[in-house]
Measured scan of single mutants.
Amino acid sequence: MDALKSAGRALIRSPSLAKQSWGGGGRHRKLPENWTDTRETLLEGMLFSLKYLGMTLVEQPKGEELSAAAIKRIVATAKASGKKLQKVTLKVSPRGIILTDNLTNQLIENVSIYRISYCTADKMHDKVFAYIAQSQHNQSLECHAFLCTKRKMAQAVTLTVAQAFKVAFEFWQVSKEEKEKRDKASQEGGDVLGARQDCTPPLKSLVATGNLLDLEETAKAPLSTVSANTTNMDEVPRPQALSGSSVVWELDDGLDEAFSRLAQSRTNPQVLDTGLTAQDMHYAQCLSPVDWDKPDSSGTEQDDLFSF
């Protein structure tokens, strides 16, 4: 819950932080000083300027060897085509990944977070970031790969997607708890209302004896509580940590079903599988986004697919 609360507080303090972009060759504004600060901008989305290598189908939802083989196929196909790589912007948030063309600003792909089953910074092609997700059109699994400016960037994108998945799962947990509370309150309110109706004398007997209905007592009954809980029953509950912020979080049926399955089948359902080692994760978390744009010590960066 700490990640969720800190993310909400950060967004309320400075929503404009989320509009910064990394990996864009110096076009961005001043960047936060450390990885923790940038992680807090996830709610509205972190932007990464990358190059799209392509996509291939895979048979399993996750796995280092599986993704490595898929990336190898994608890279080989991209090299064989001889075409310049498409420059894209990857927007990562707890909602998922939005992929747009840098030149036309046209939407290429919009992947809900619950469809993503794996992401990684490839070991062999260490400047490549990739994720595996279920197609929104059918049940097939797709591996999408992107060329980053350097290994640090690939690791940073991988960690960002993993963190977005974690925050999304926490949102789901909060929403589920809130819905259970509202359902319980609604049920209790309905029981109270039913009890009051059972003990209320029939209207005919009131008229016969000349008694008047006590409207004041009726007004004191917990009807307002019942209506408050039943009027918006169809509205999706939102985490309290975000009250007053500009973010509107809505959970669709697909996300609810997917996270429910994860909660039942996995020990740590909030953790998205990645190909990063503990050492890689520690190294990337210690980086400032400013470091992502620094040239690798191995030599001059080449803006070309064939540089790796």
Rank of each mutant, 00 (worst) to 15 (best):
V167R: 12
E64Y: 13
Q197V: 03
K30E: 13
S288A: 15
K30A: 10
P295T: 01
D280R: 06
I132P: 00
I108C: 06
G63Q: 01
A69C: 06
G210L: 01
S245Q: 09
D214F: 04
Y52R: 01
S112G: 06
Q134P: 07
A278N: 09
W172A: 03
L287W: 10
L215G: 08
C143E: 09
S245I: 11
G24F: 10
E177F: 09
K294E: 08
R115T: 05
A18I: 09
R13A: 11
K184I: 15
G96V: 12
L90R: 00
W22D: 03
P239G: 03
D2C: 01
E64F: 11
T149N: 10
L31P: 14
K220A: 13
F169E: 02
T160P: 00
S21F: 07
L66S: 07
G275P: 04
A168G: 05
T36A: 04
E59F: 06
R39Y: 05
E257Y: 09
K166E: 14
I12C: 13
V271D: 10
R151E: 01
S205P: 11
N229L: 06
T267W: 08
P222H: 10
L215M: 08
Q264F: 09
S67N: 02
C119S: 11
S260G: 10
T267E: 07
T120I: 02
T230L: 06
E257S: 05
G210K: 04
E257G: 08
A164T: 06
L107S: 03
G275T: 04
H137D: 07
K181N: 15
A156D: 07
M281D: 06
K166Q: 13
L276G: 10
K79Q: 01
E177N: 12
S227I: 11
V192G: 04
F171K: 10
I97F: 02
D273V: 04
K152Y: 12
N232S: 05
A228V: 10
S175E: 01
G194E: 09
K19W: 13
S243A: 15
D304W: 05
A121E: 13
D293M: 11
R39H: 14
A162V: 01
E65G: 10
L251R: 09
G194V: 09
T267L: 05
Q155P: 00
L159M: 13
L223D: 03
T209M: 07
Q302T: 14
I97V: 15
Q279S: 04
E109V: 06
G194S: 05
A284P: 11
Q240R: 13
K19T: 10
E59T: 10
K79F: 06
A164C: 13
P15G: 13
R115F: 03
Y283K: 11
L31A: 08
I132A: 08
T100E: 13
R238M: 08
A18K: 11
K84P: 07
G24H: 07
T277S: 11
G96F: 02
L203V: 07
R39N: 03
K87E: 09
G275N: 08
K181S: 13
K83R: 10
D191N: 11
K72S: 14
D234H: 04
E33V: 15
V111S: 03
I12P: 11
Q86M: 06
E170D: 03
N268W: 03
N232E: 06
G254I: 01
H125T: 00
S81I: 12
Q60P: 01
A69N: 07
E142D: 09
W249C: 07
P15W: 06
A228Y: 07
K127W: 00
C143G: 01
L66T: 03
I113Y: 04
R39D: 05
L90I: 13
R13C: 15
W172N: 02
K220Y: 13
L255S: 02
N268K: 05
A18Y: 04
L99P: 07
N102Y: 10
S117C: 01
A156V: 05
L193V: 04
Q264L: 07
Y118Q: 12
I12L: 15
T89G: 08
S260N: 11
N105F: 14
P222T: 14
T218L: 06
F129W: 11
V236T: 07
N268F: 01
L53K: 01
I116V: 05
G26A: 15
A145E: 00
T77G: 06
T231D: 11
Q197M: 07
D256T: 04
E170N: 08
I12N: 08
P94A: 12
D273M: 08
D256P: 03
C119Q: 04
G82V: 14
L305Q: 07
S288W: 08
S93V: 09
S246D: 11
G8Q: 07
N34K: 11
Q106Y: 06
H125M: 00
D101P: 01
T89A: 13
M233N: 03
N229P: 03
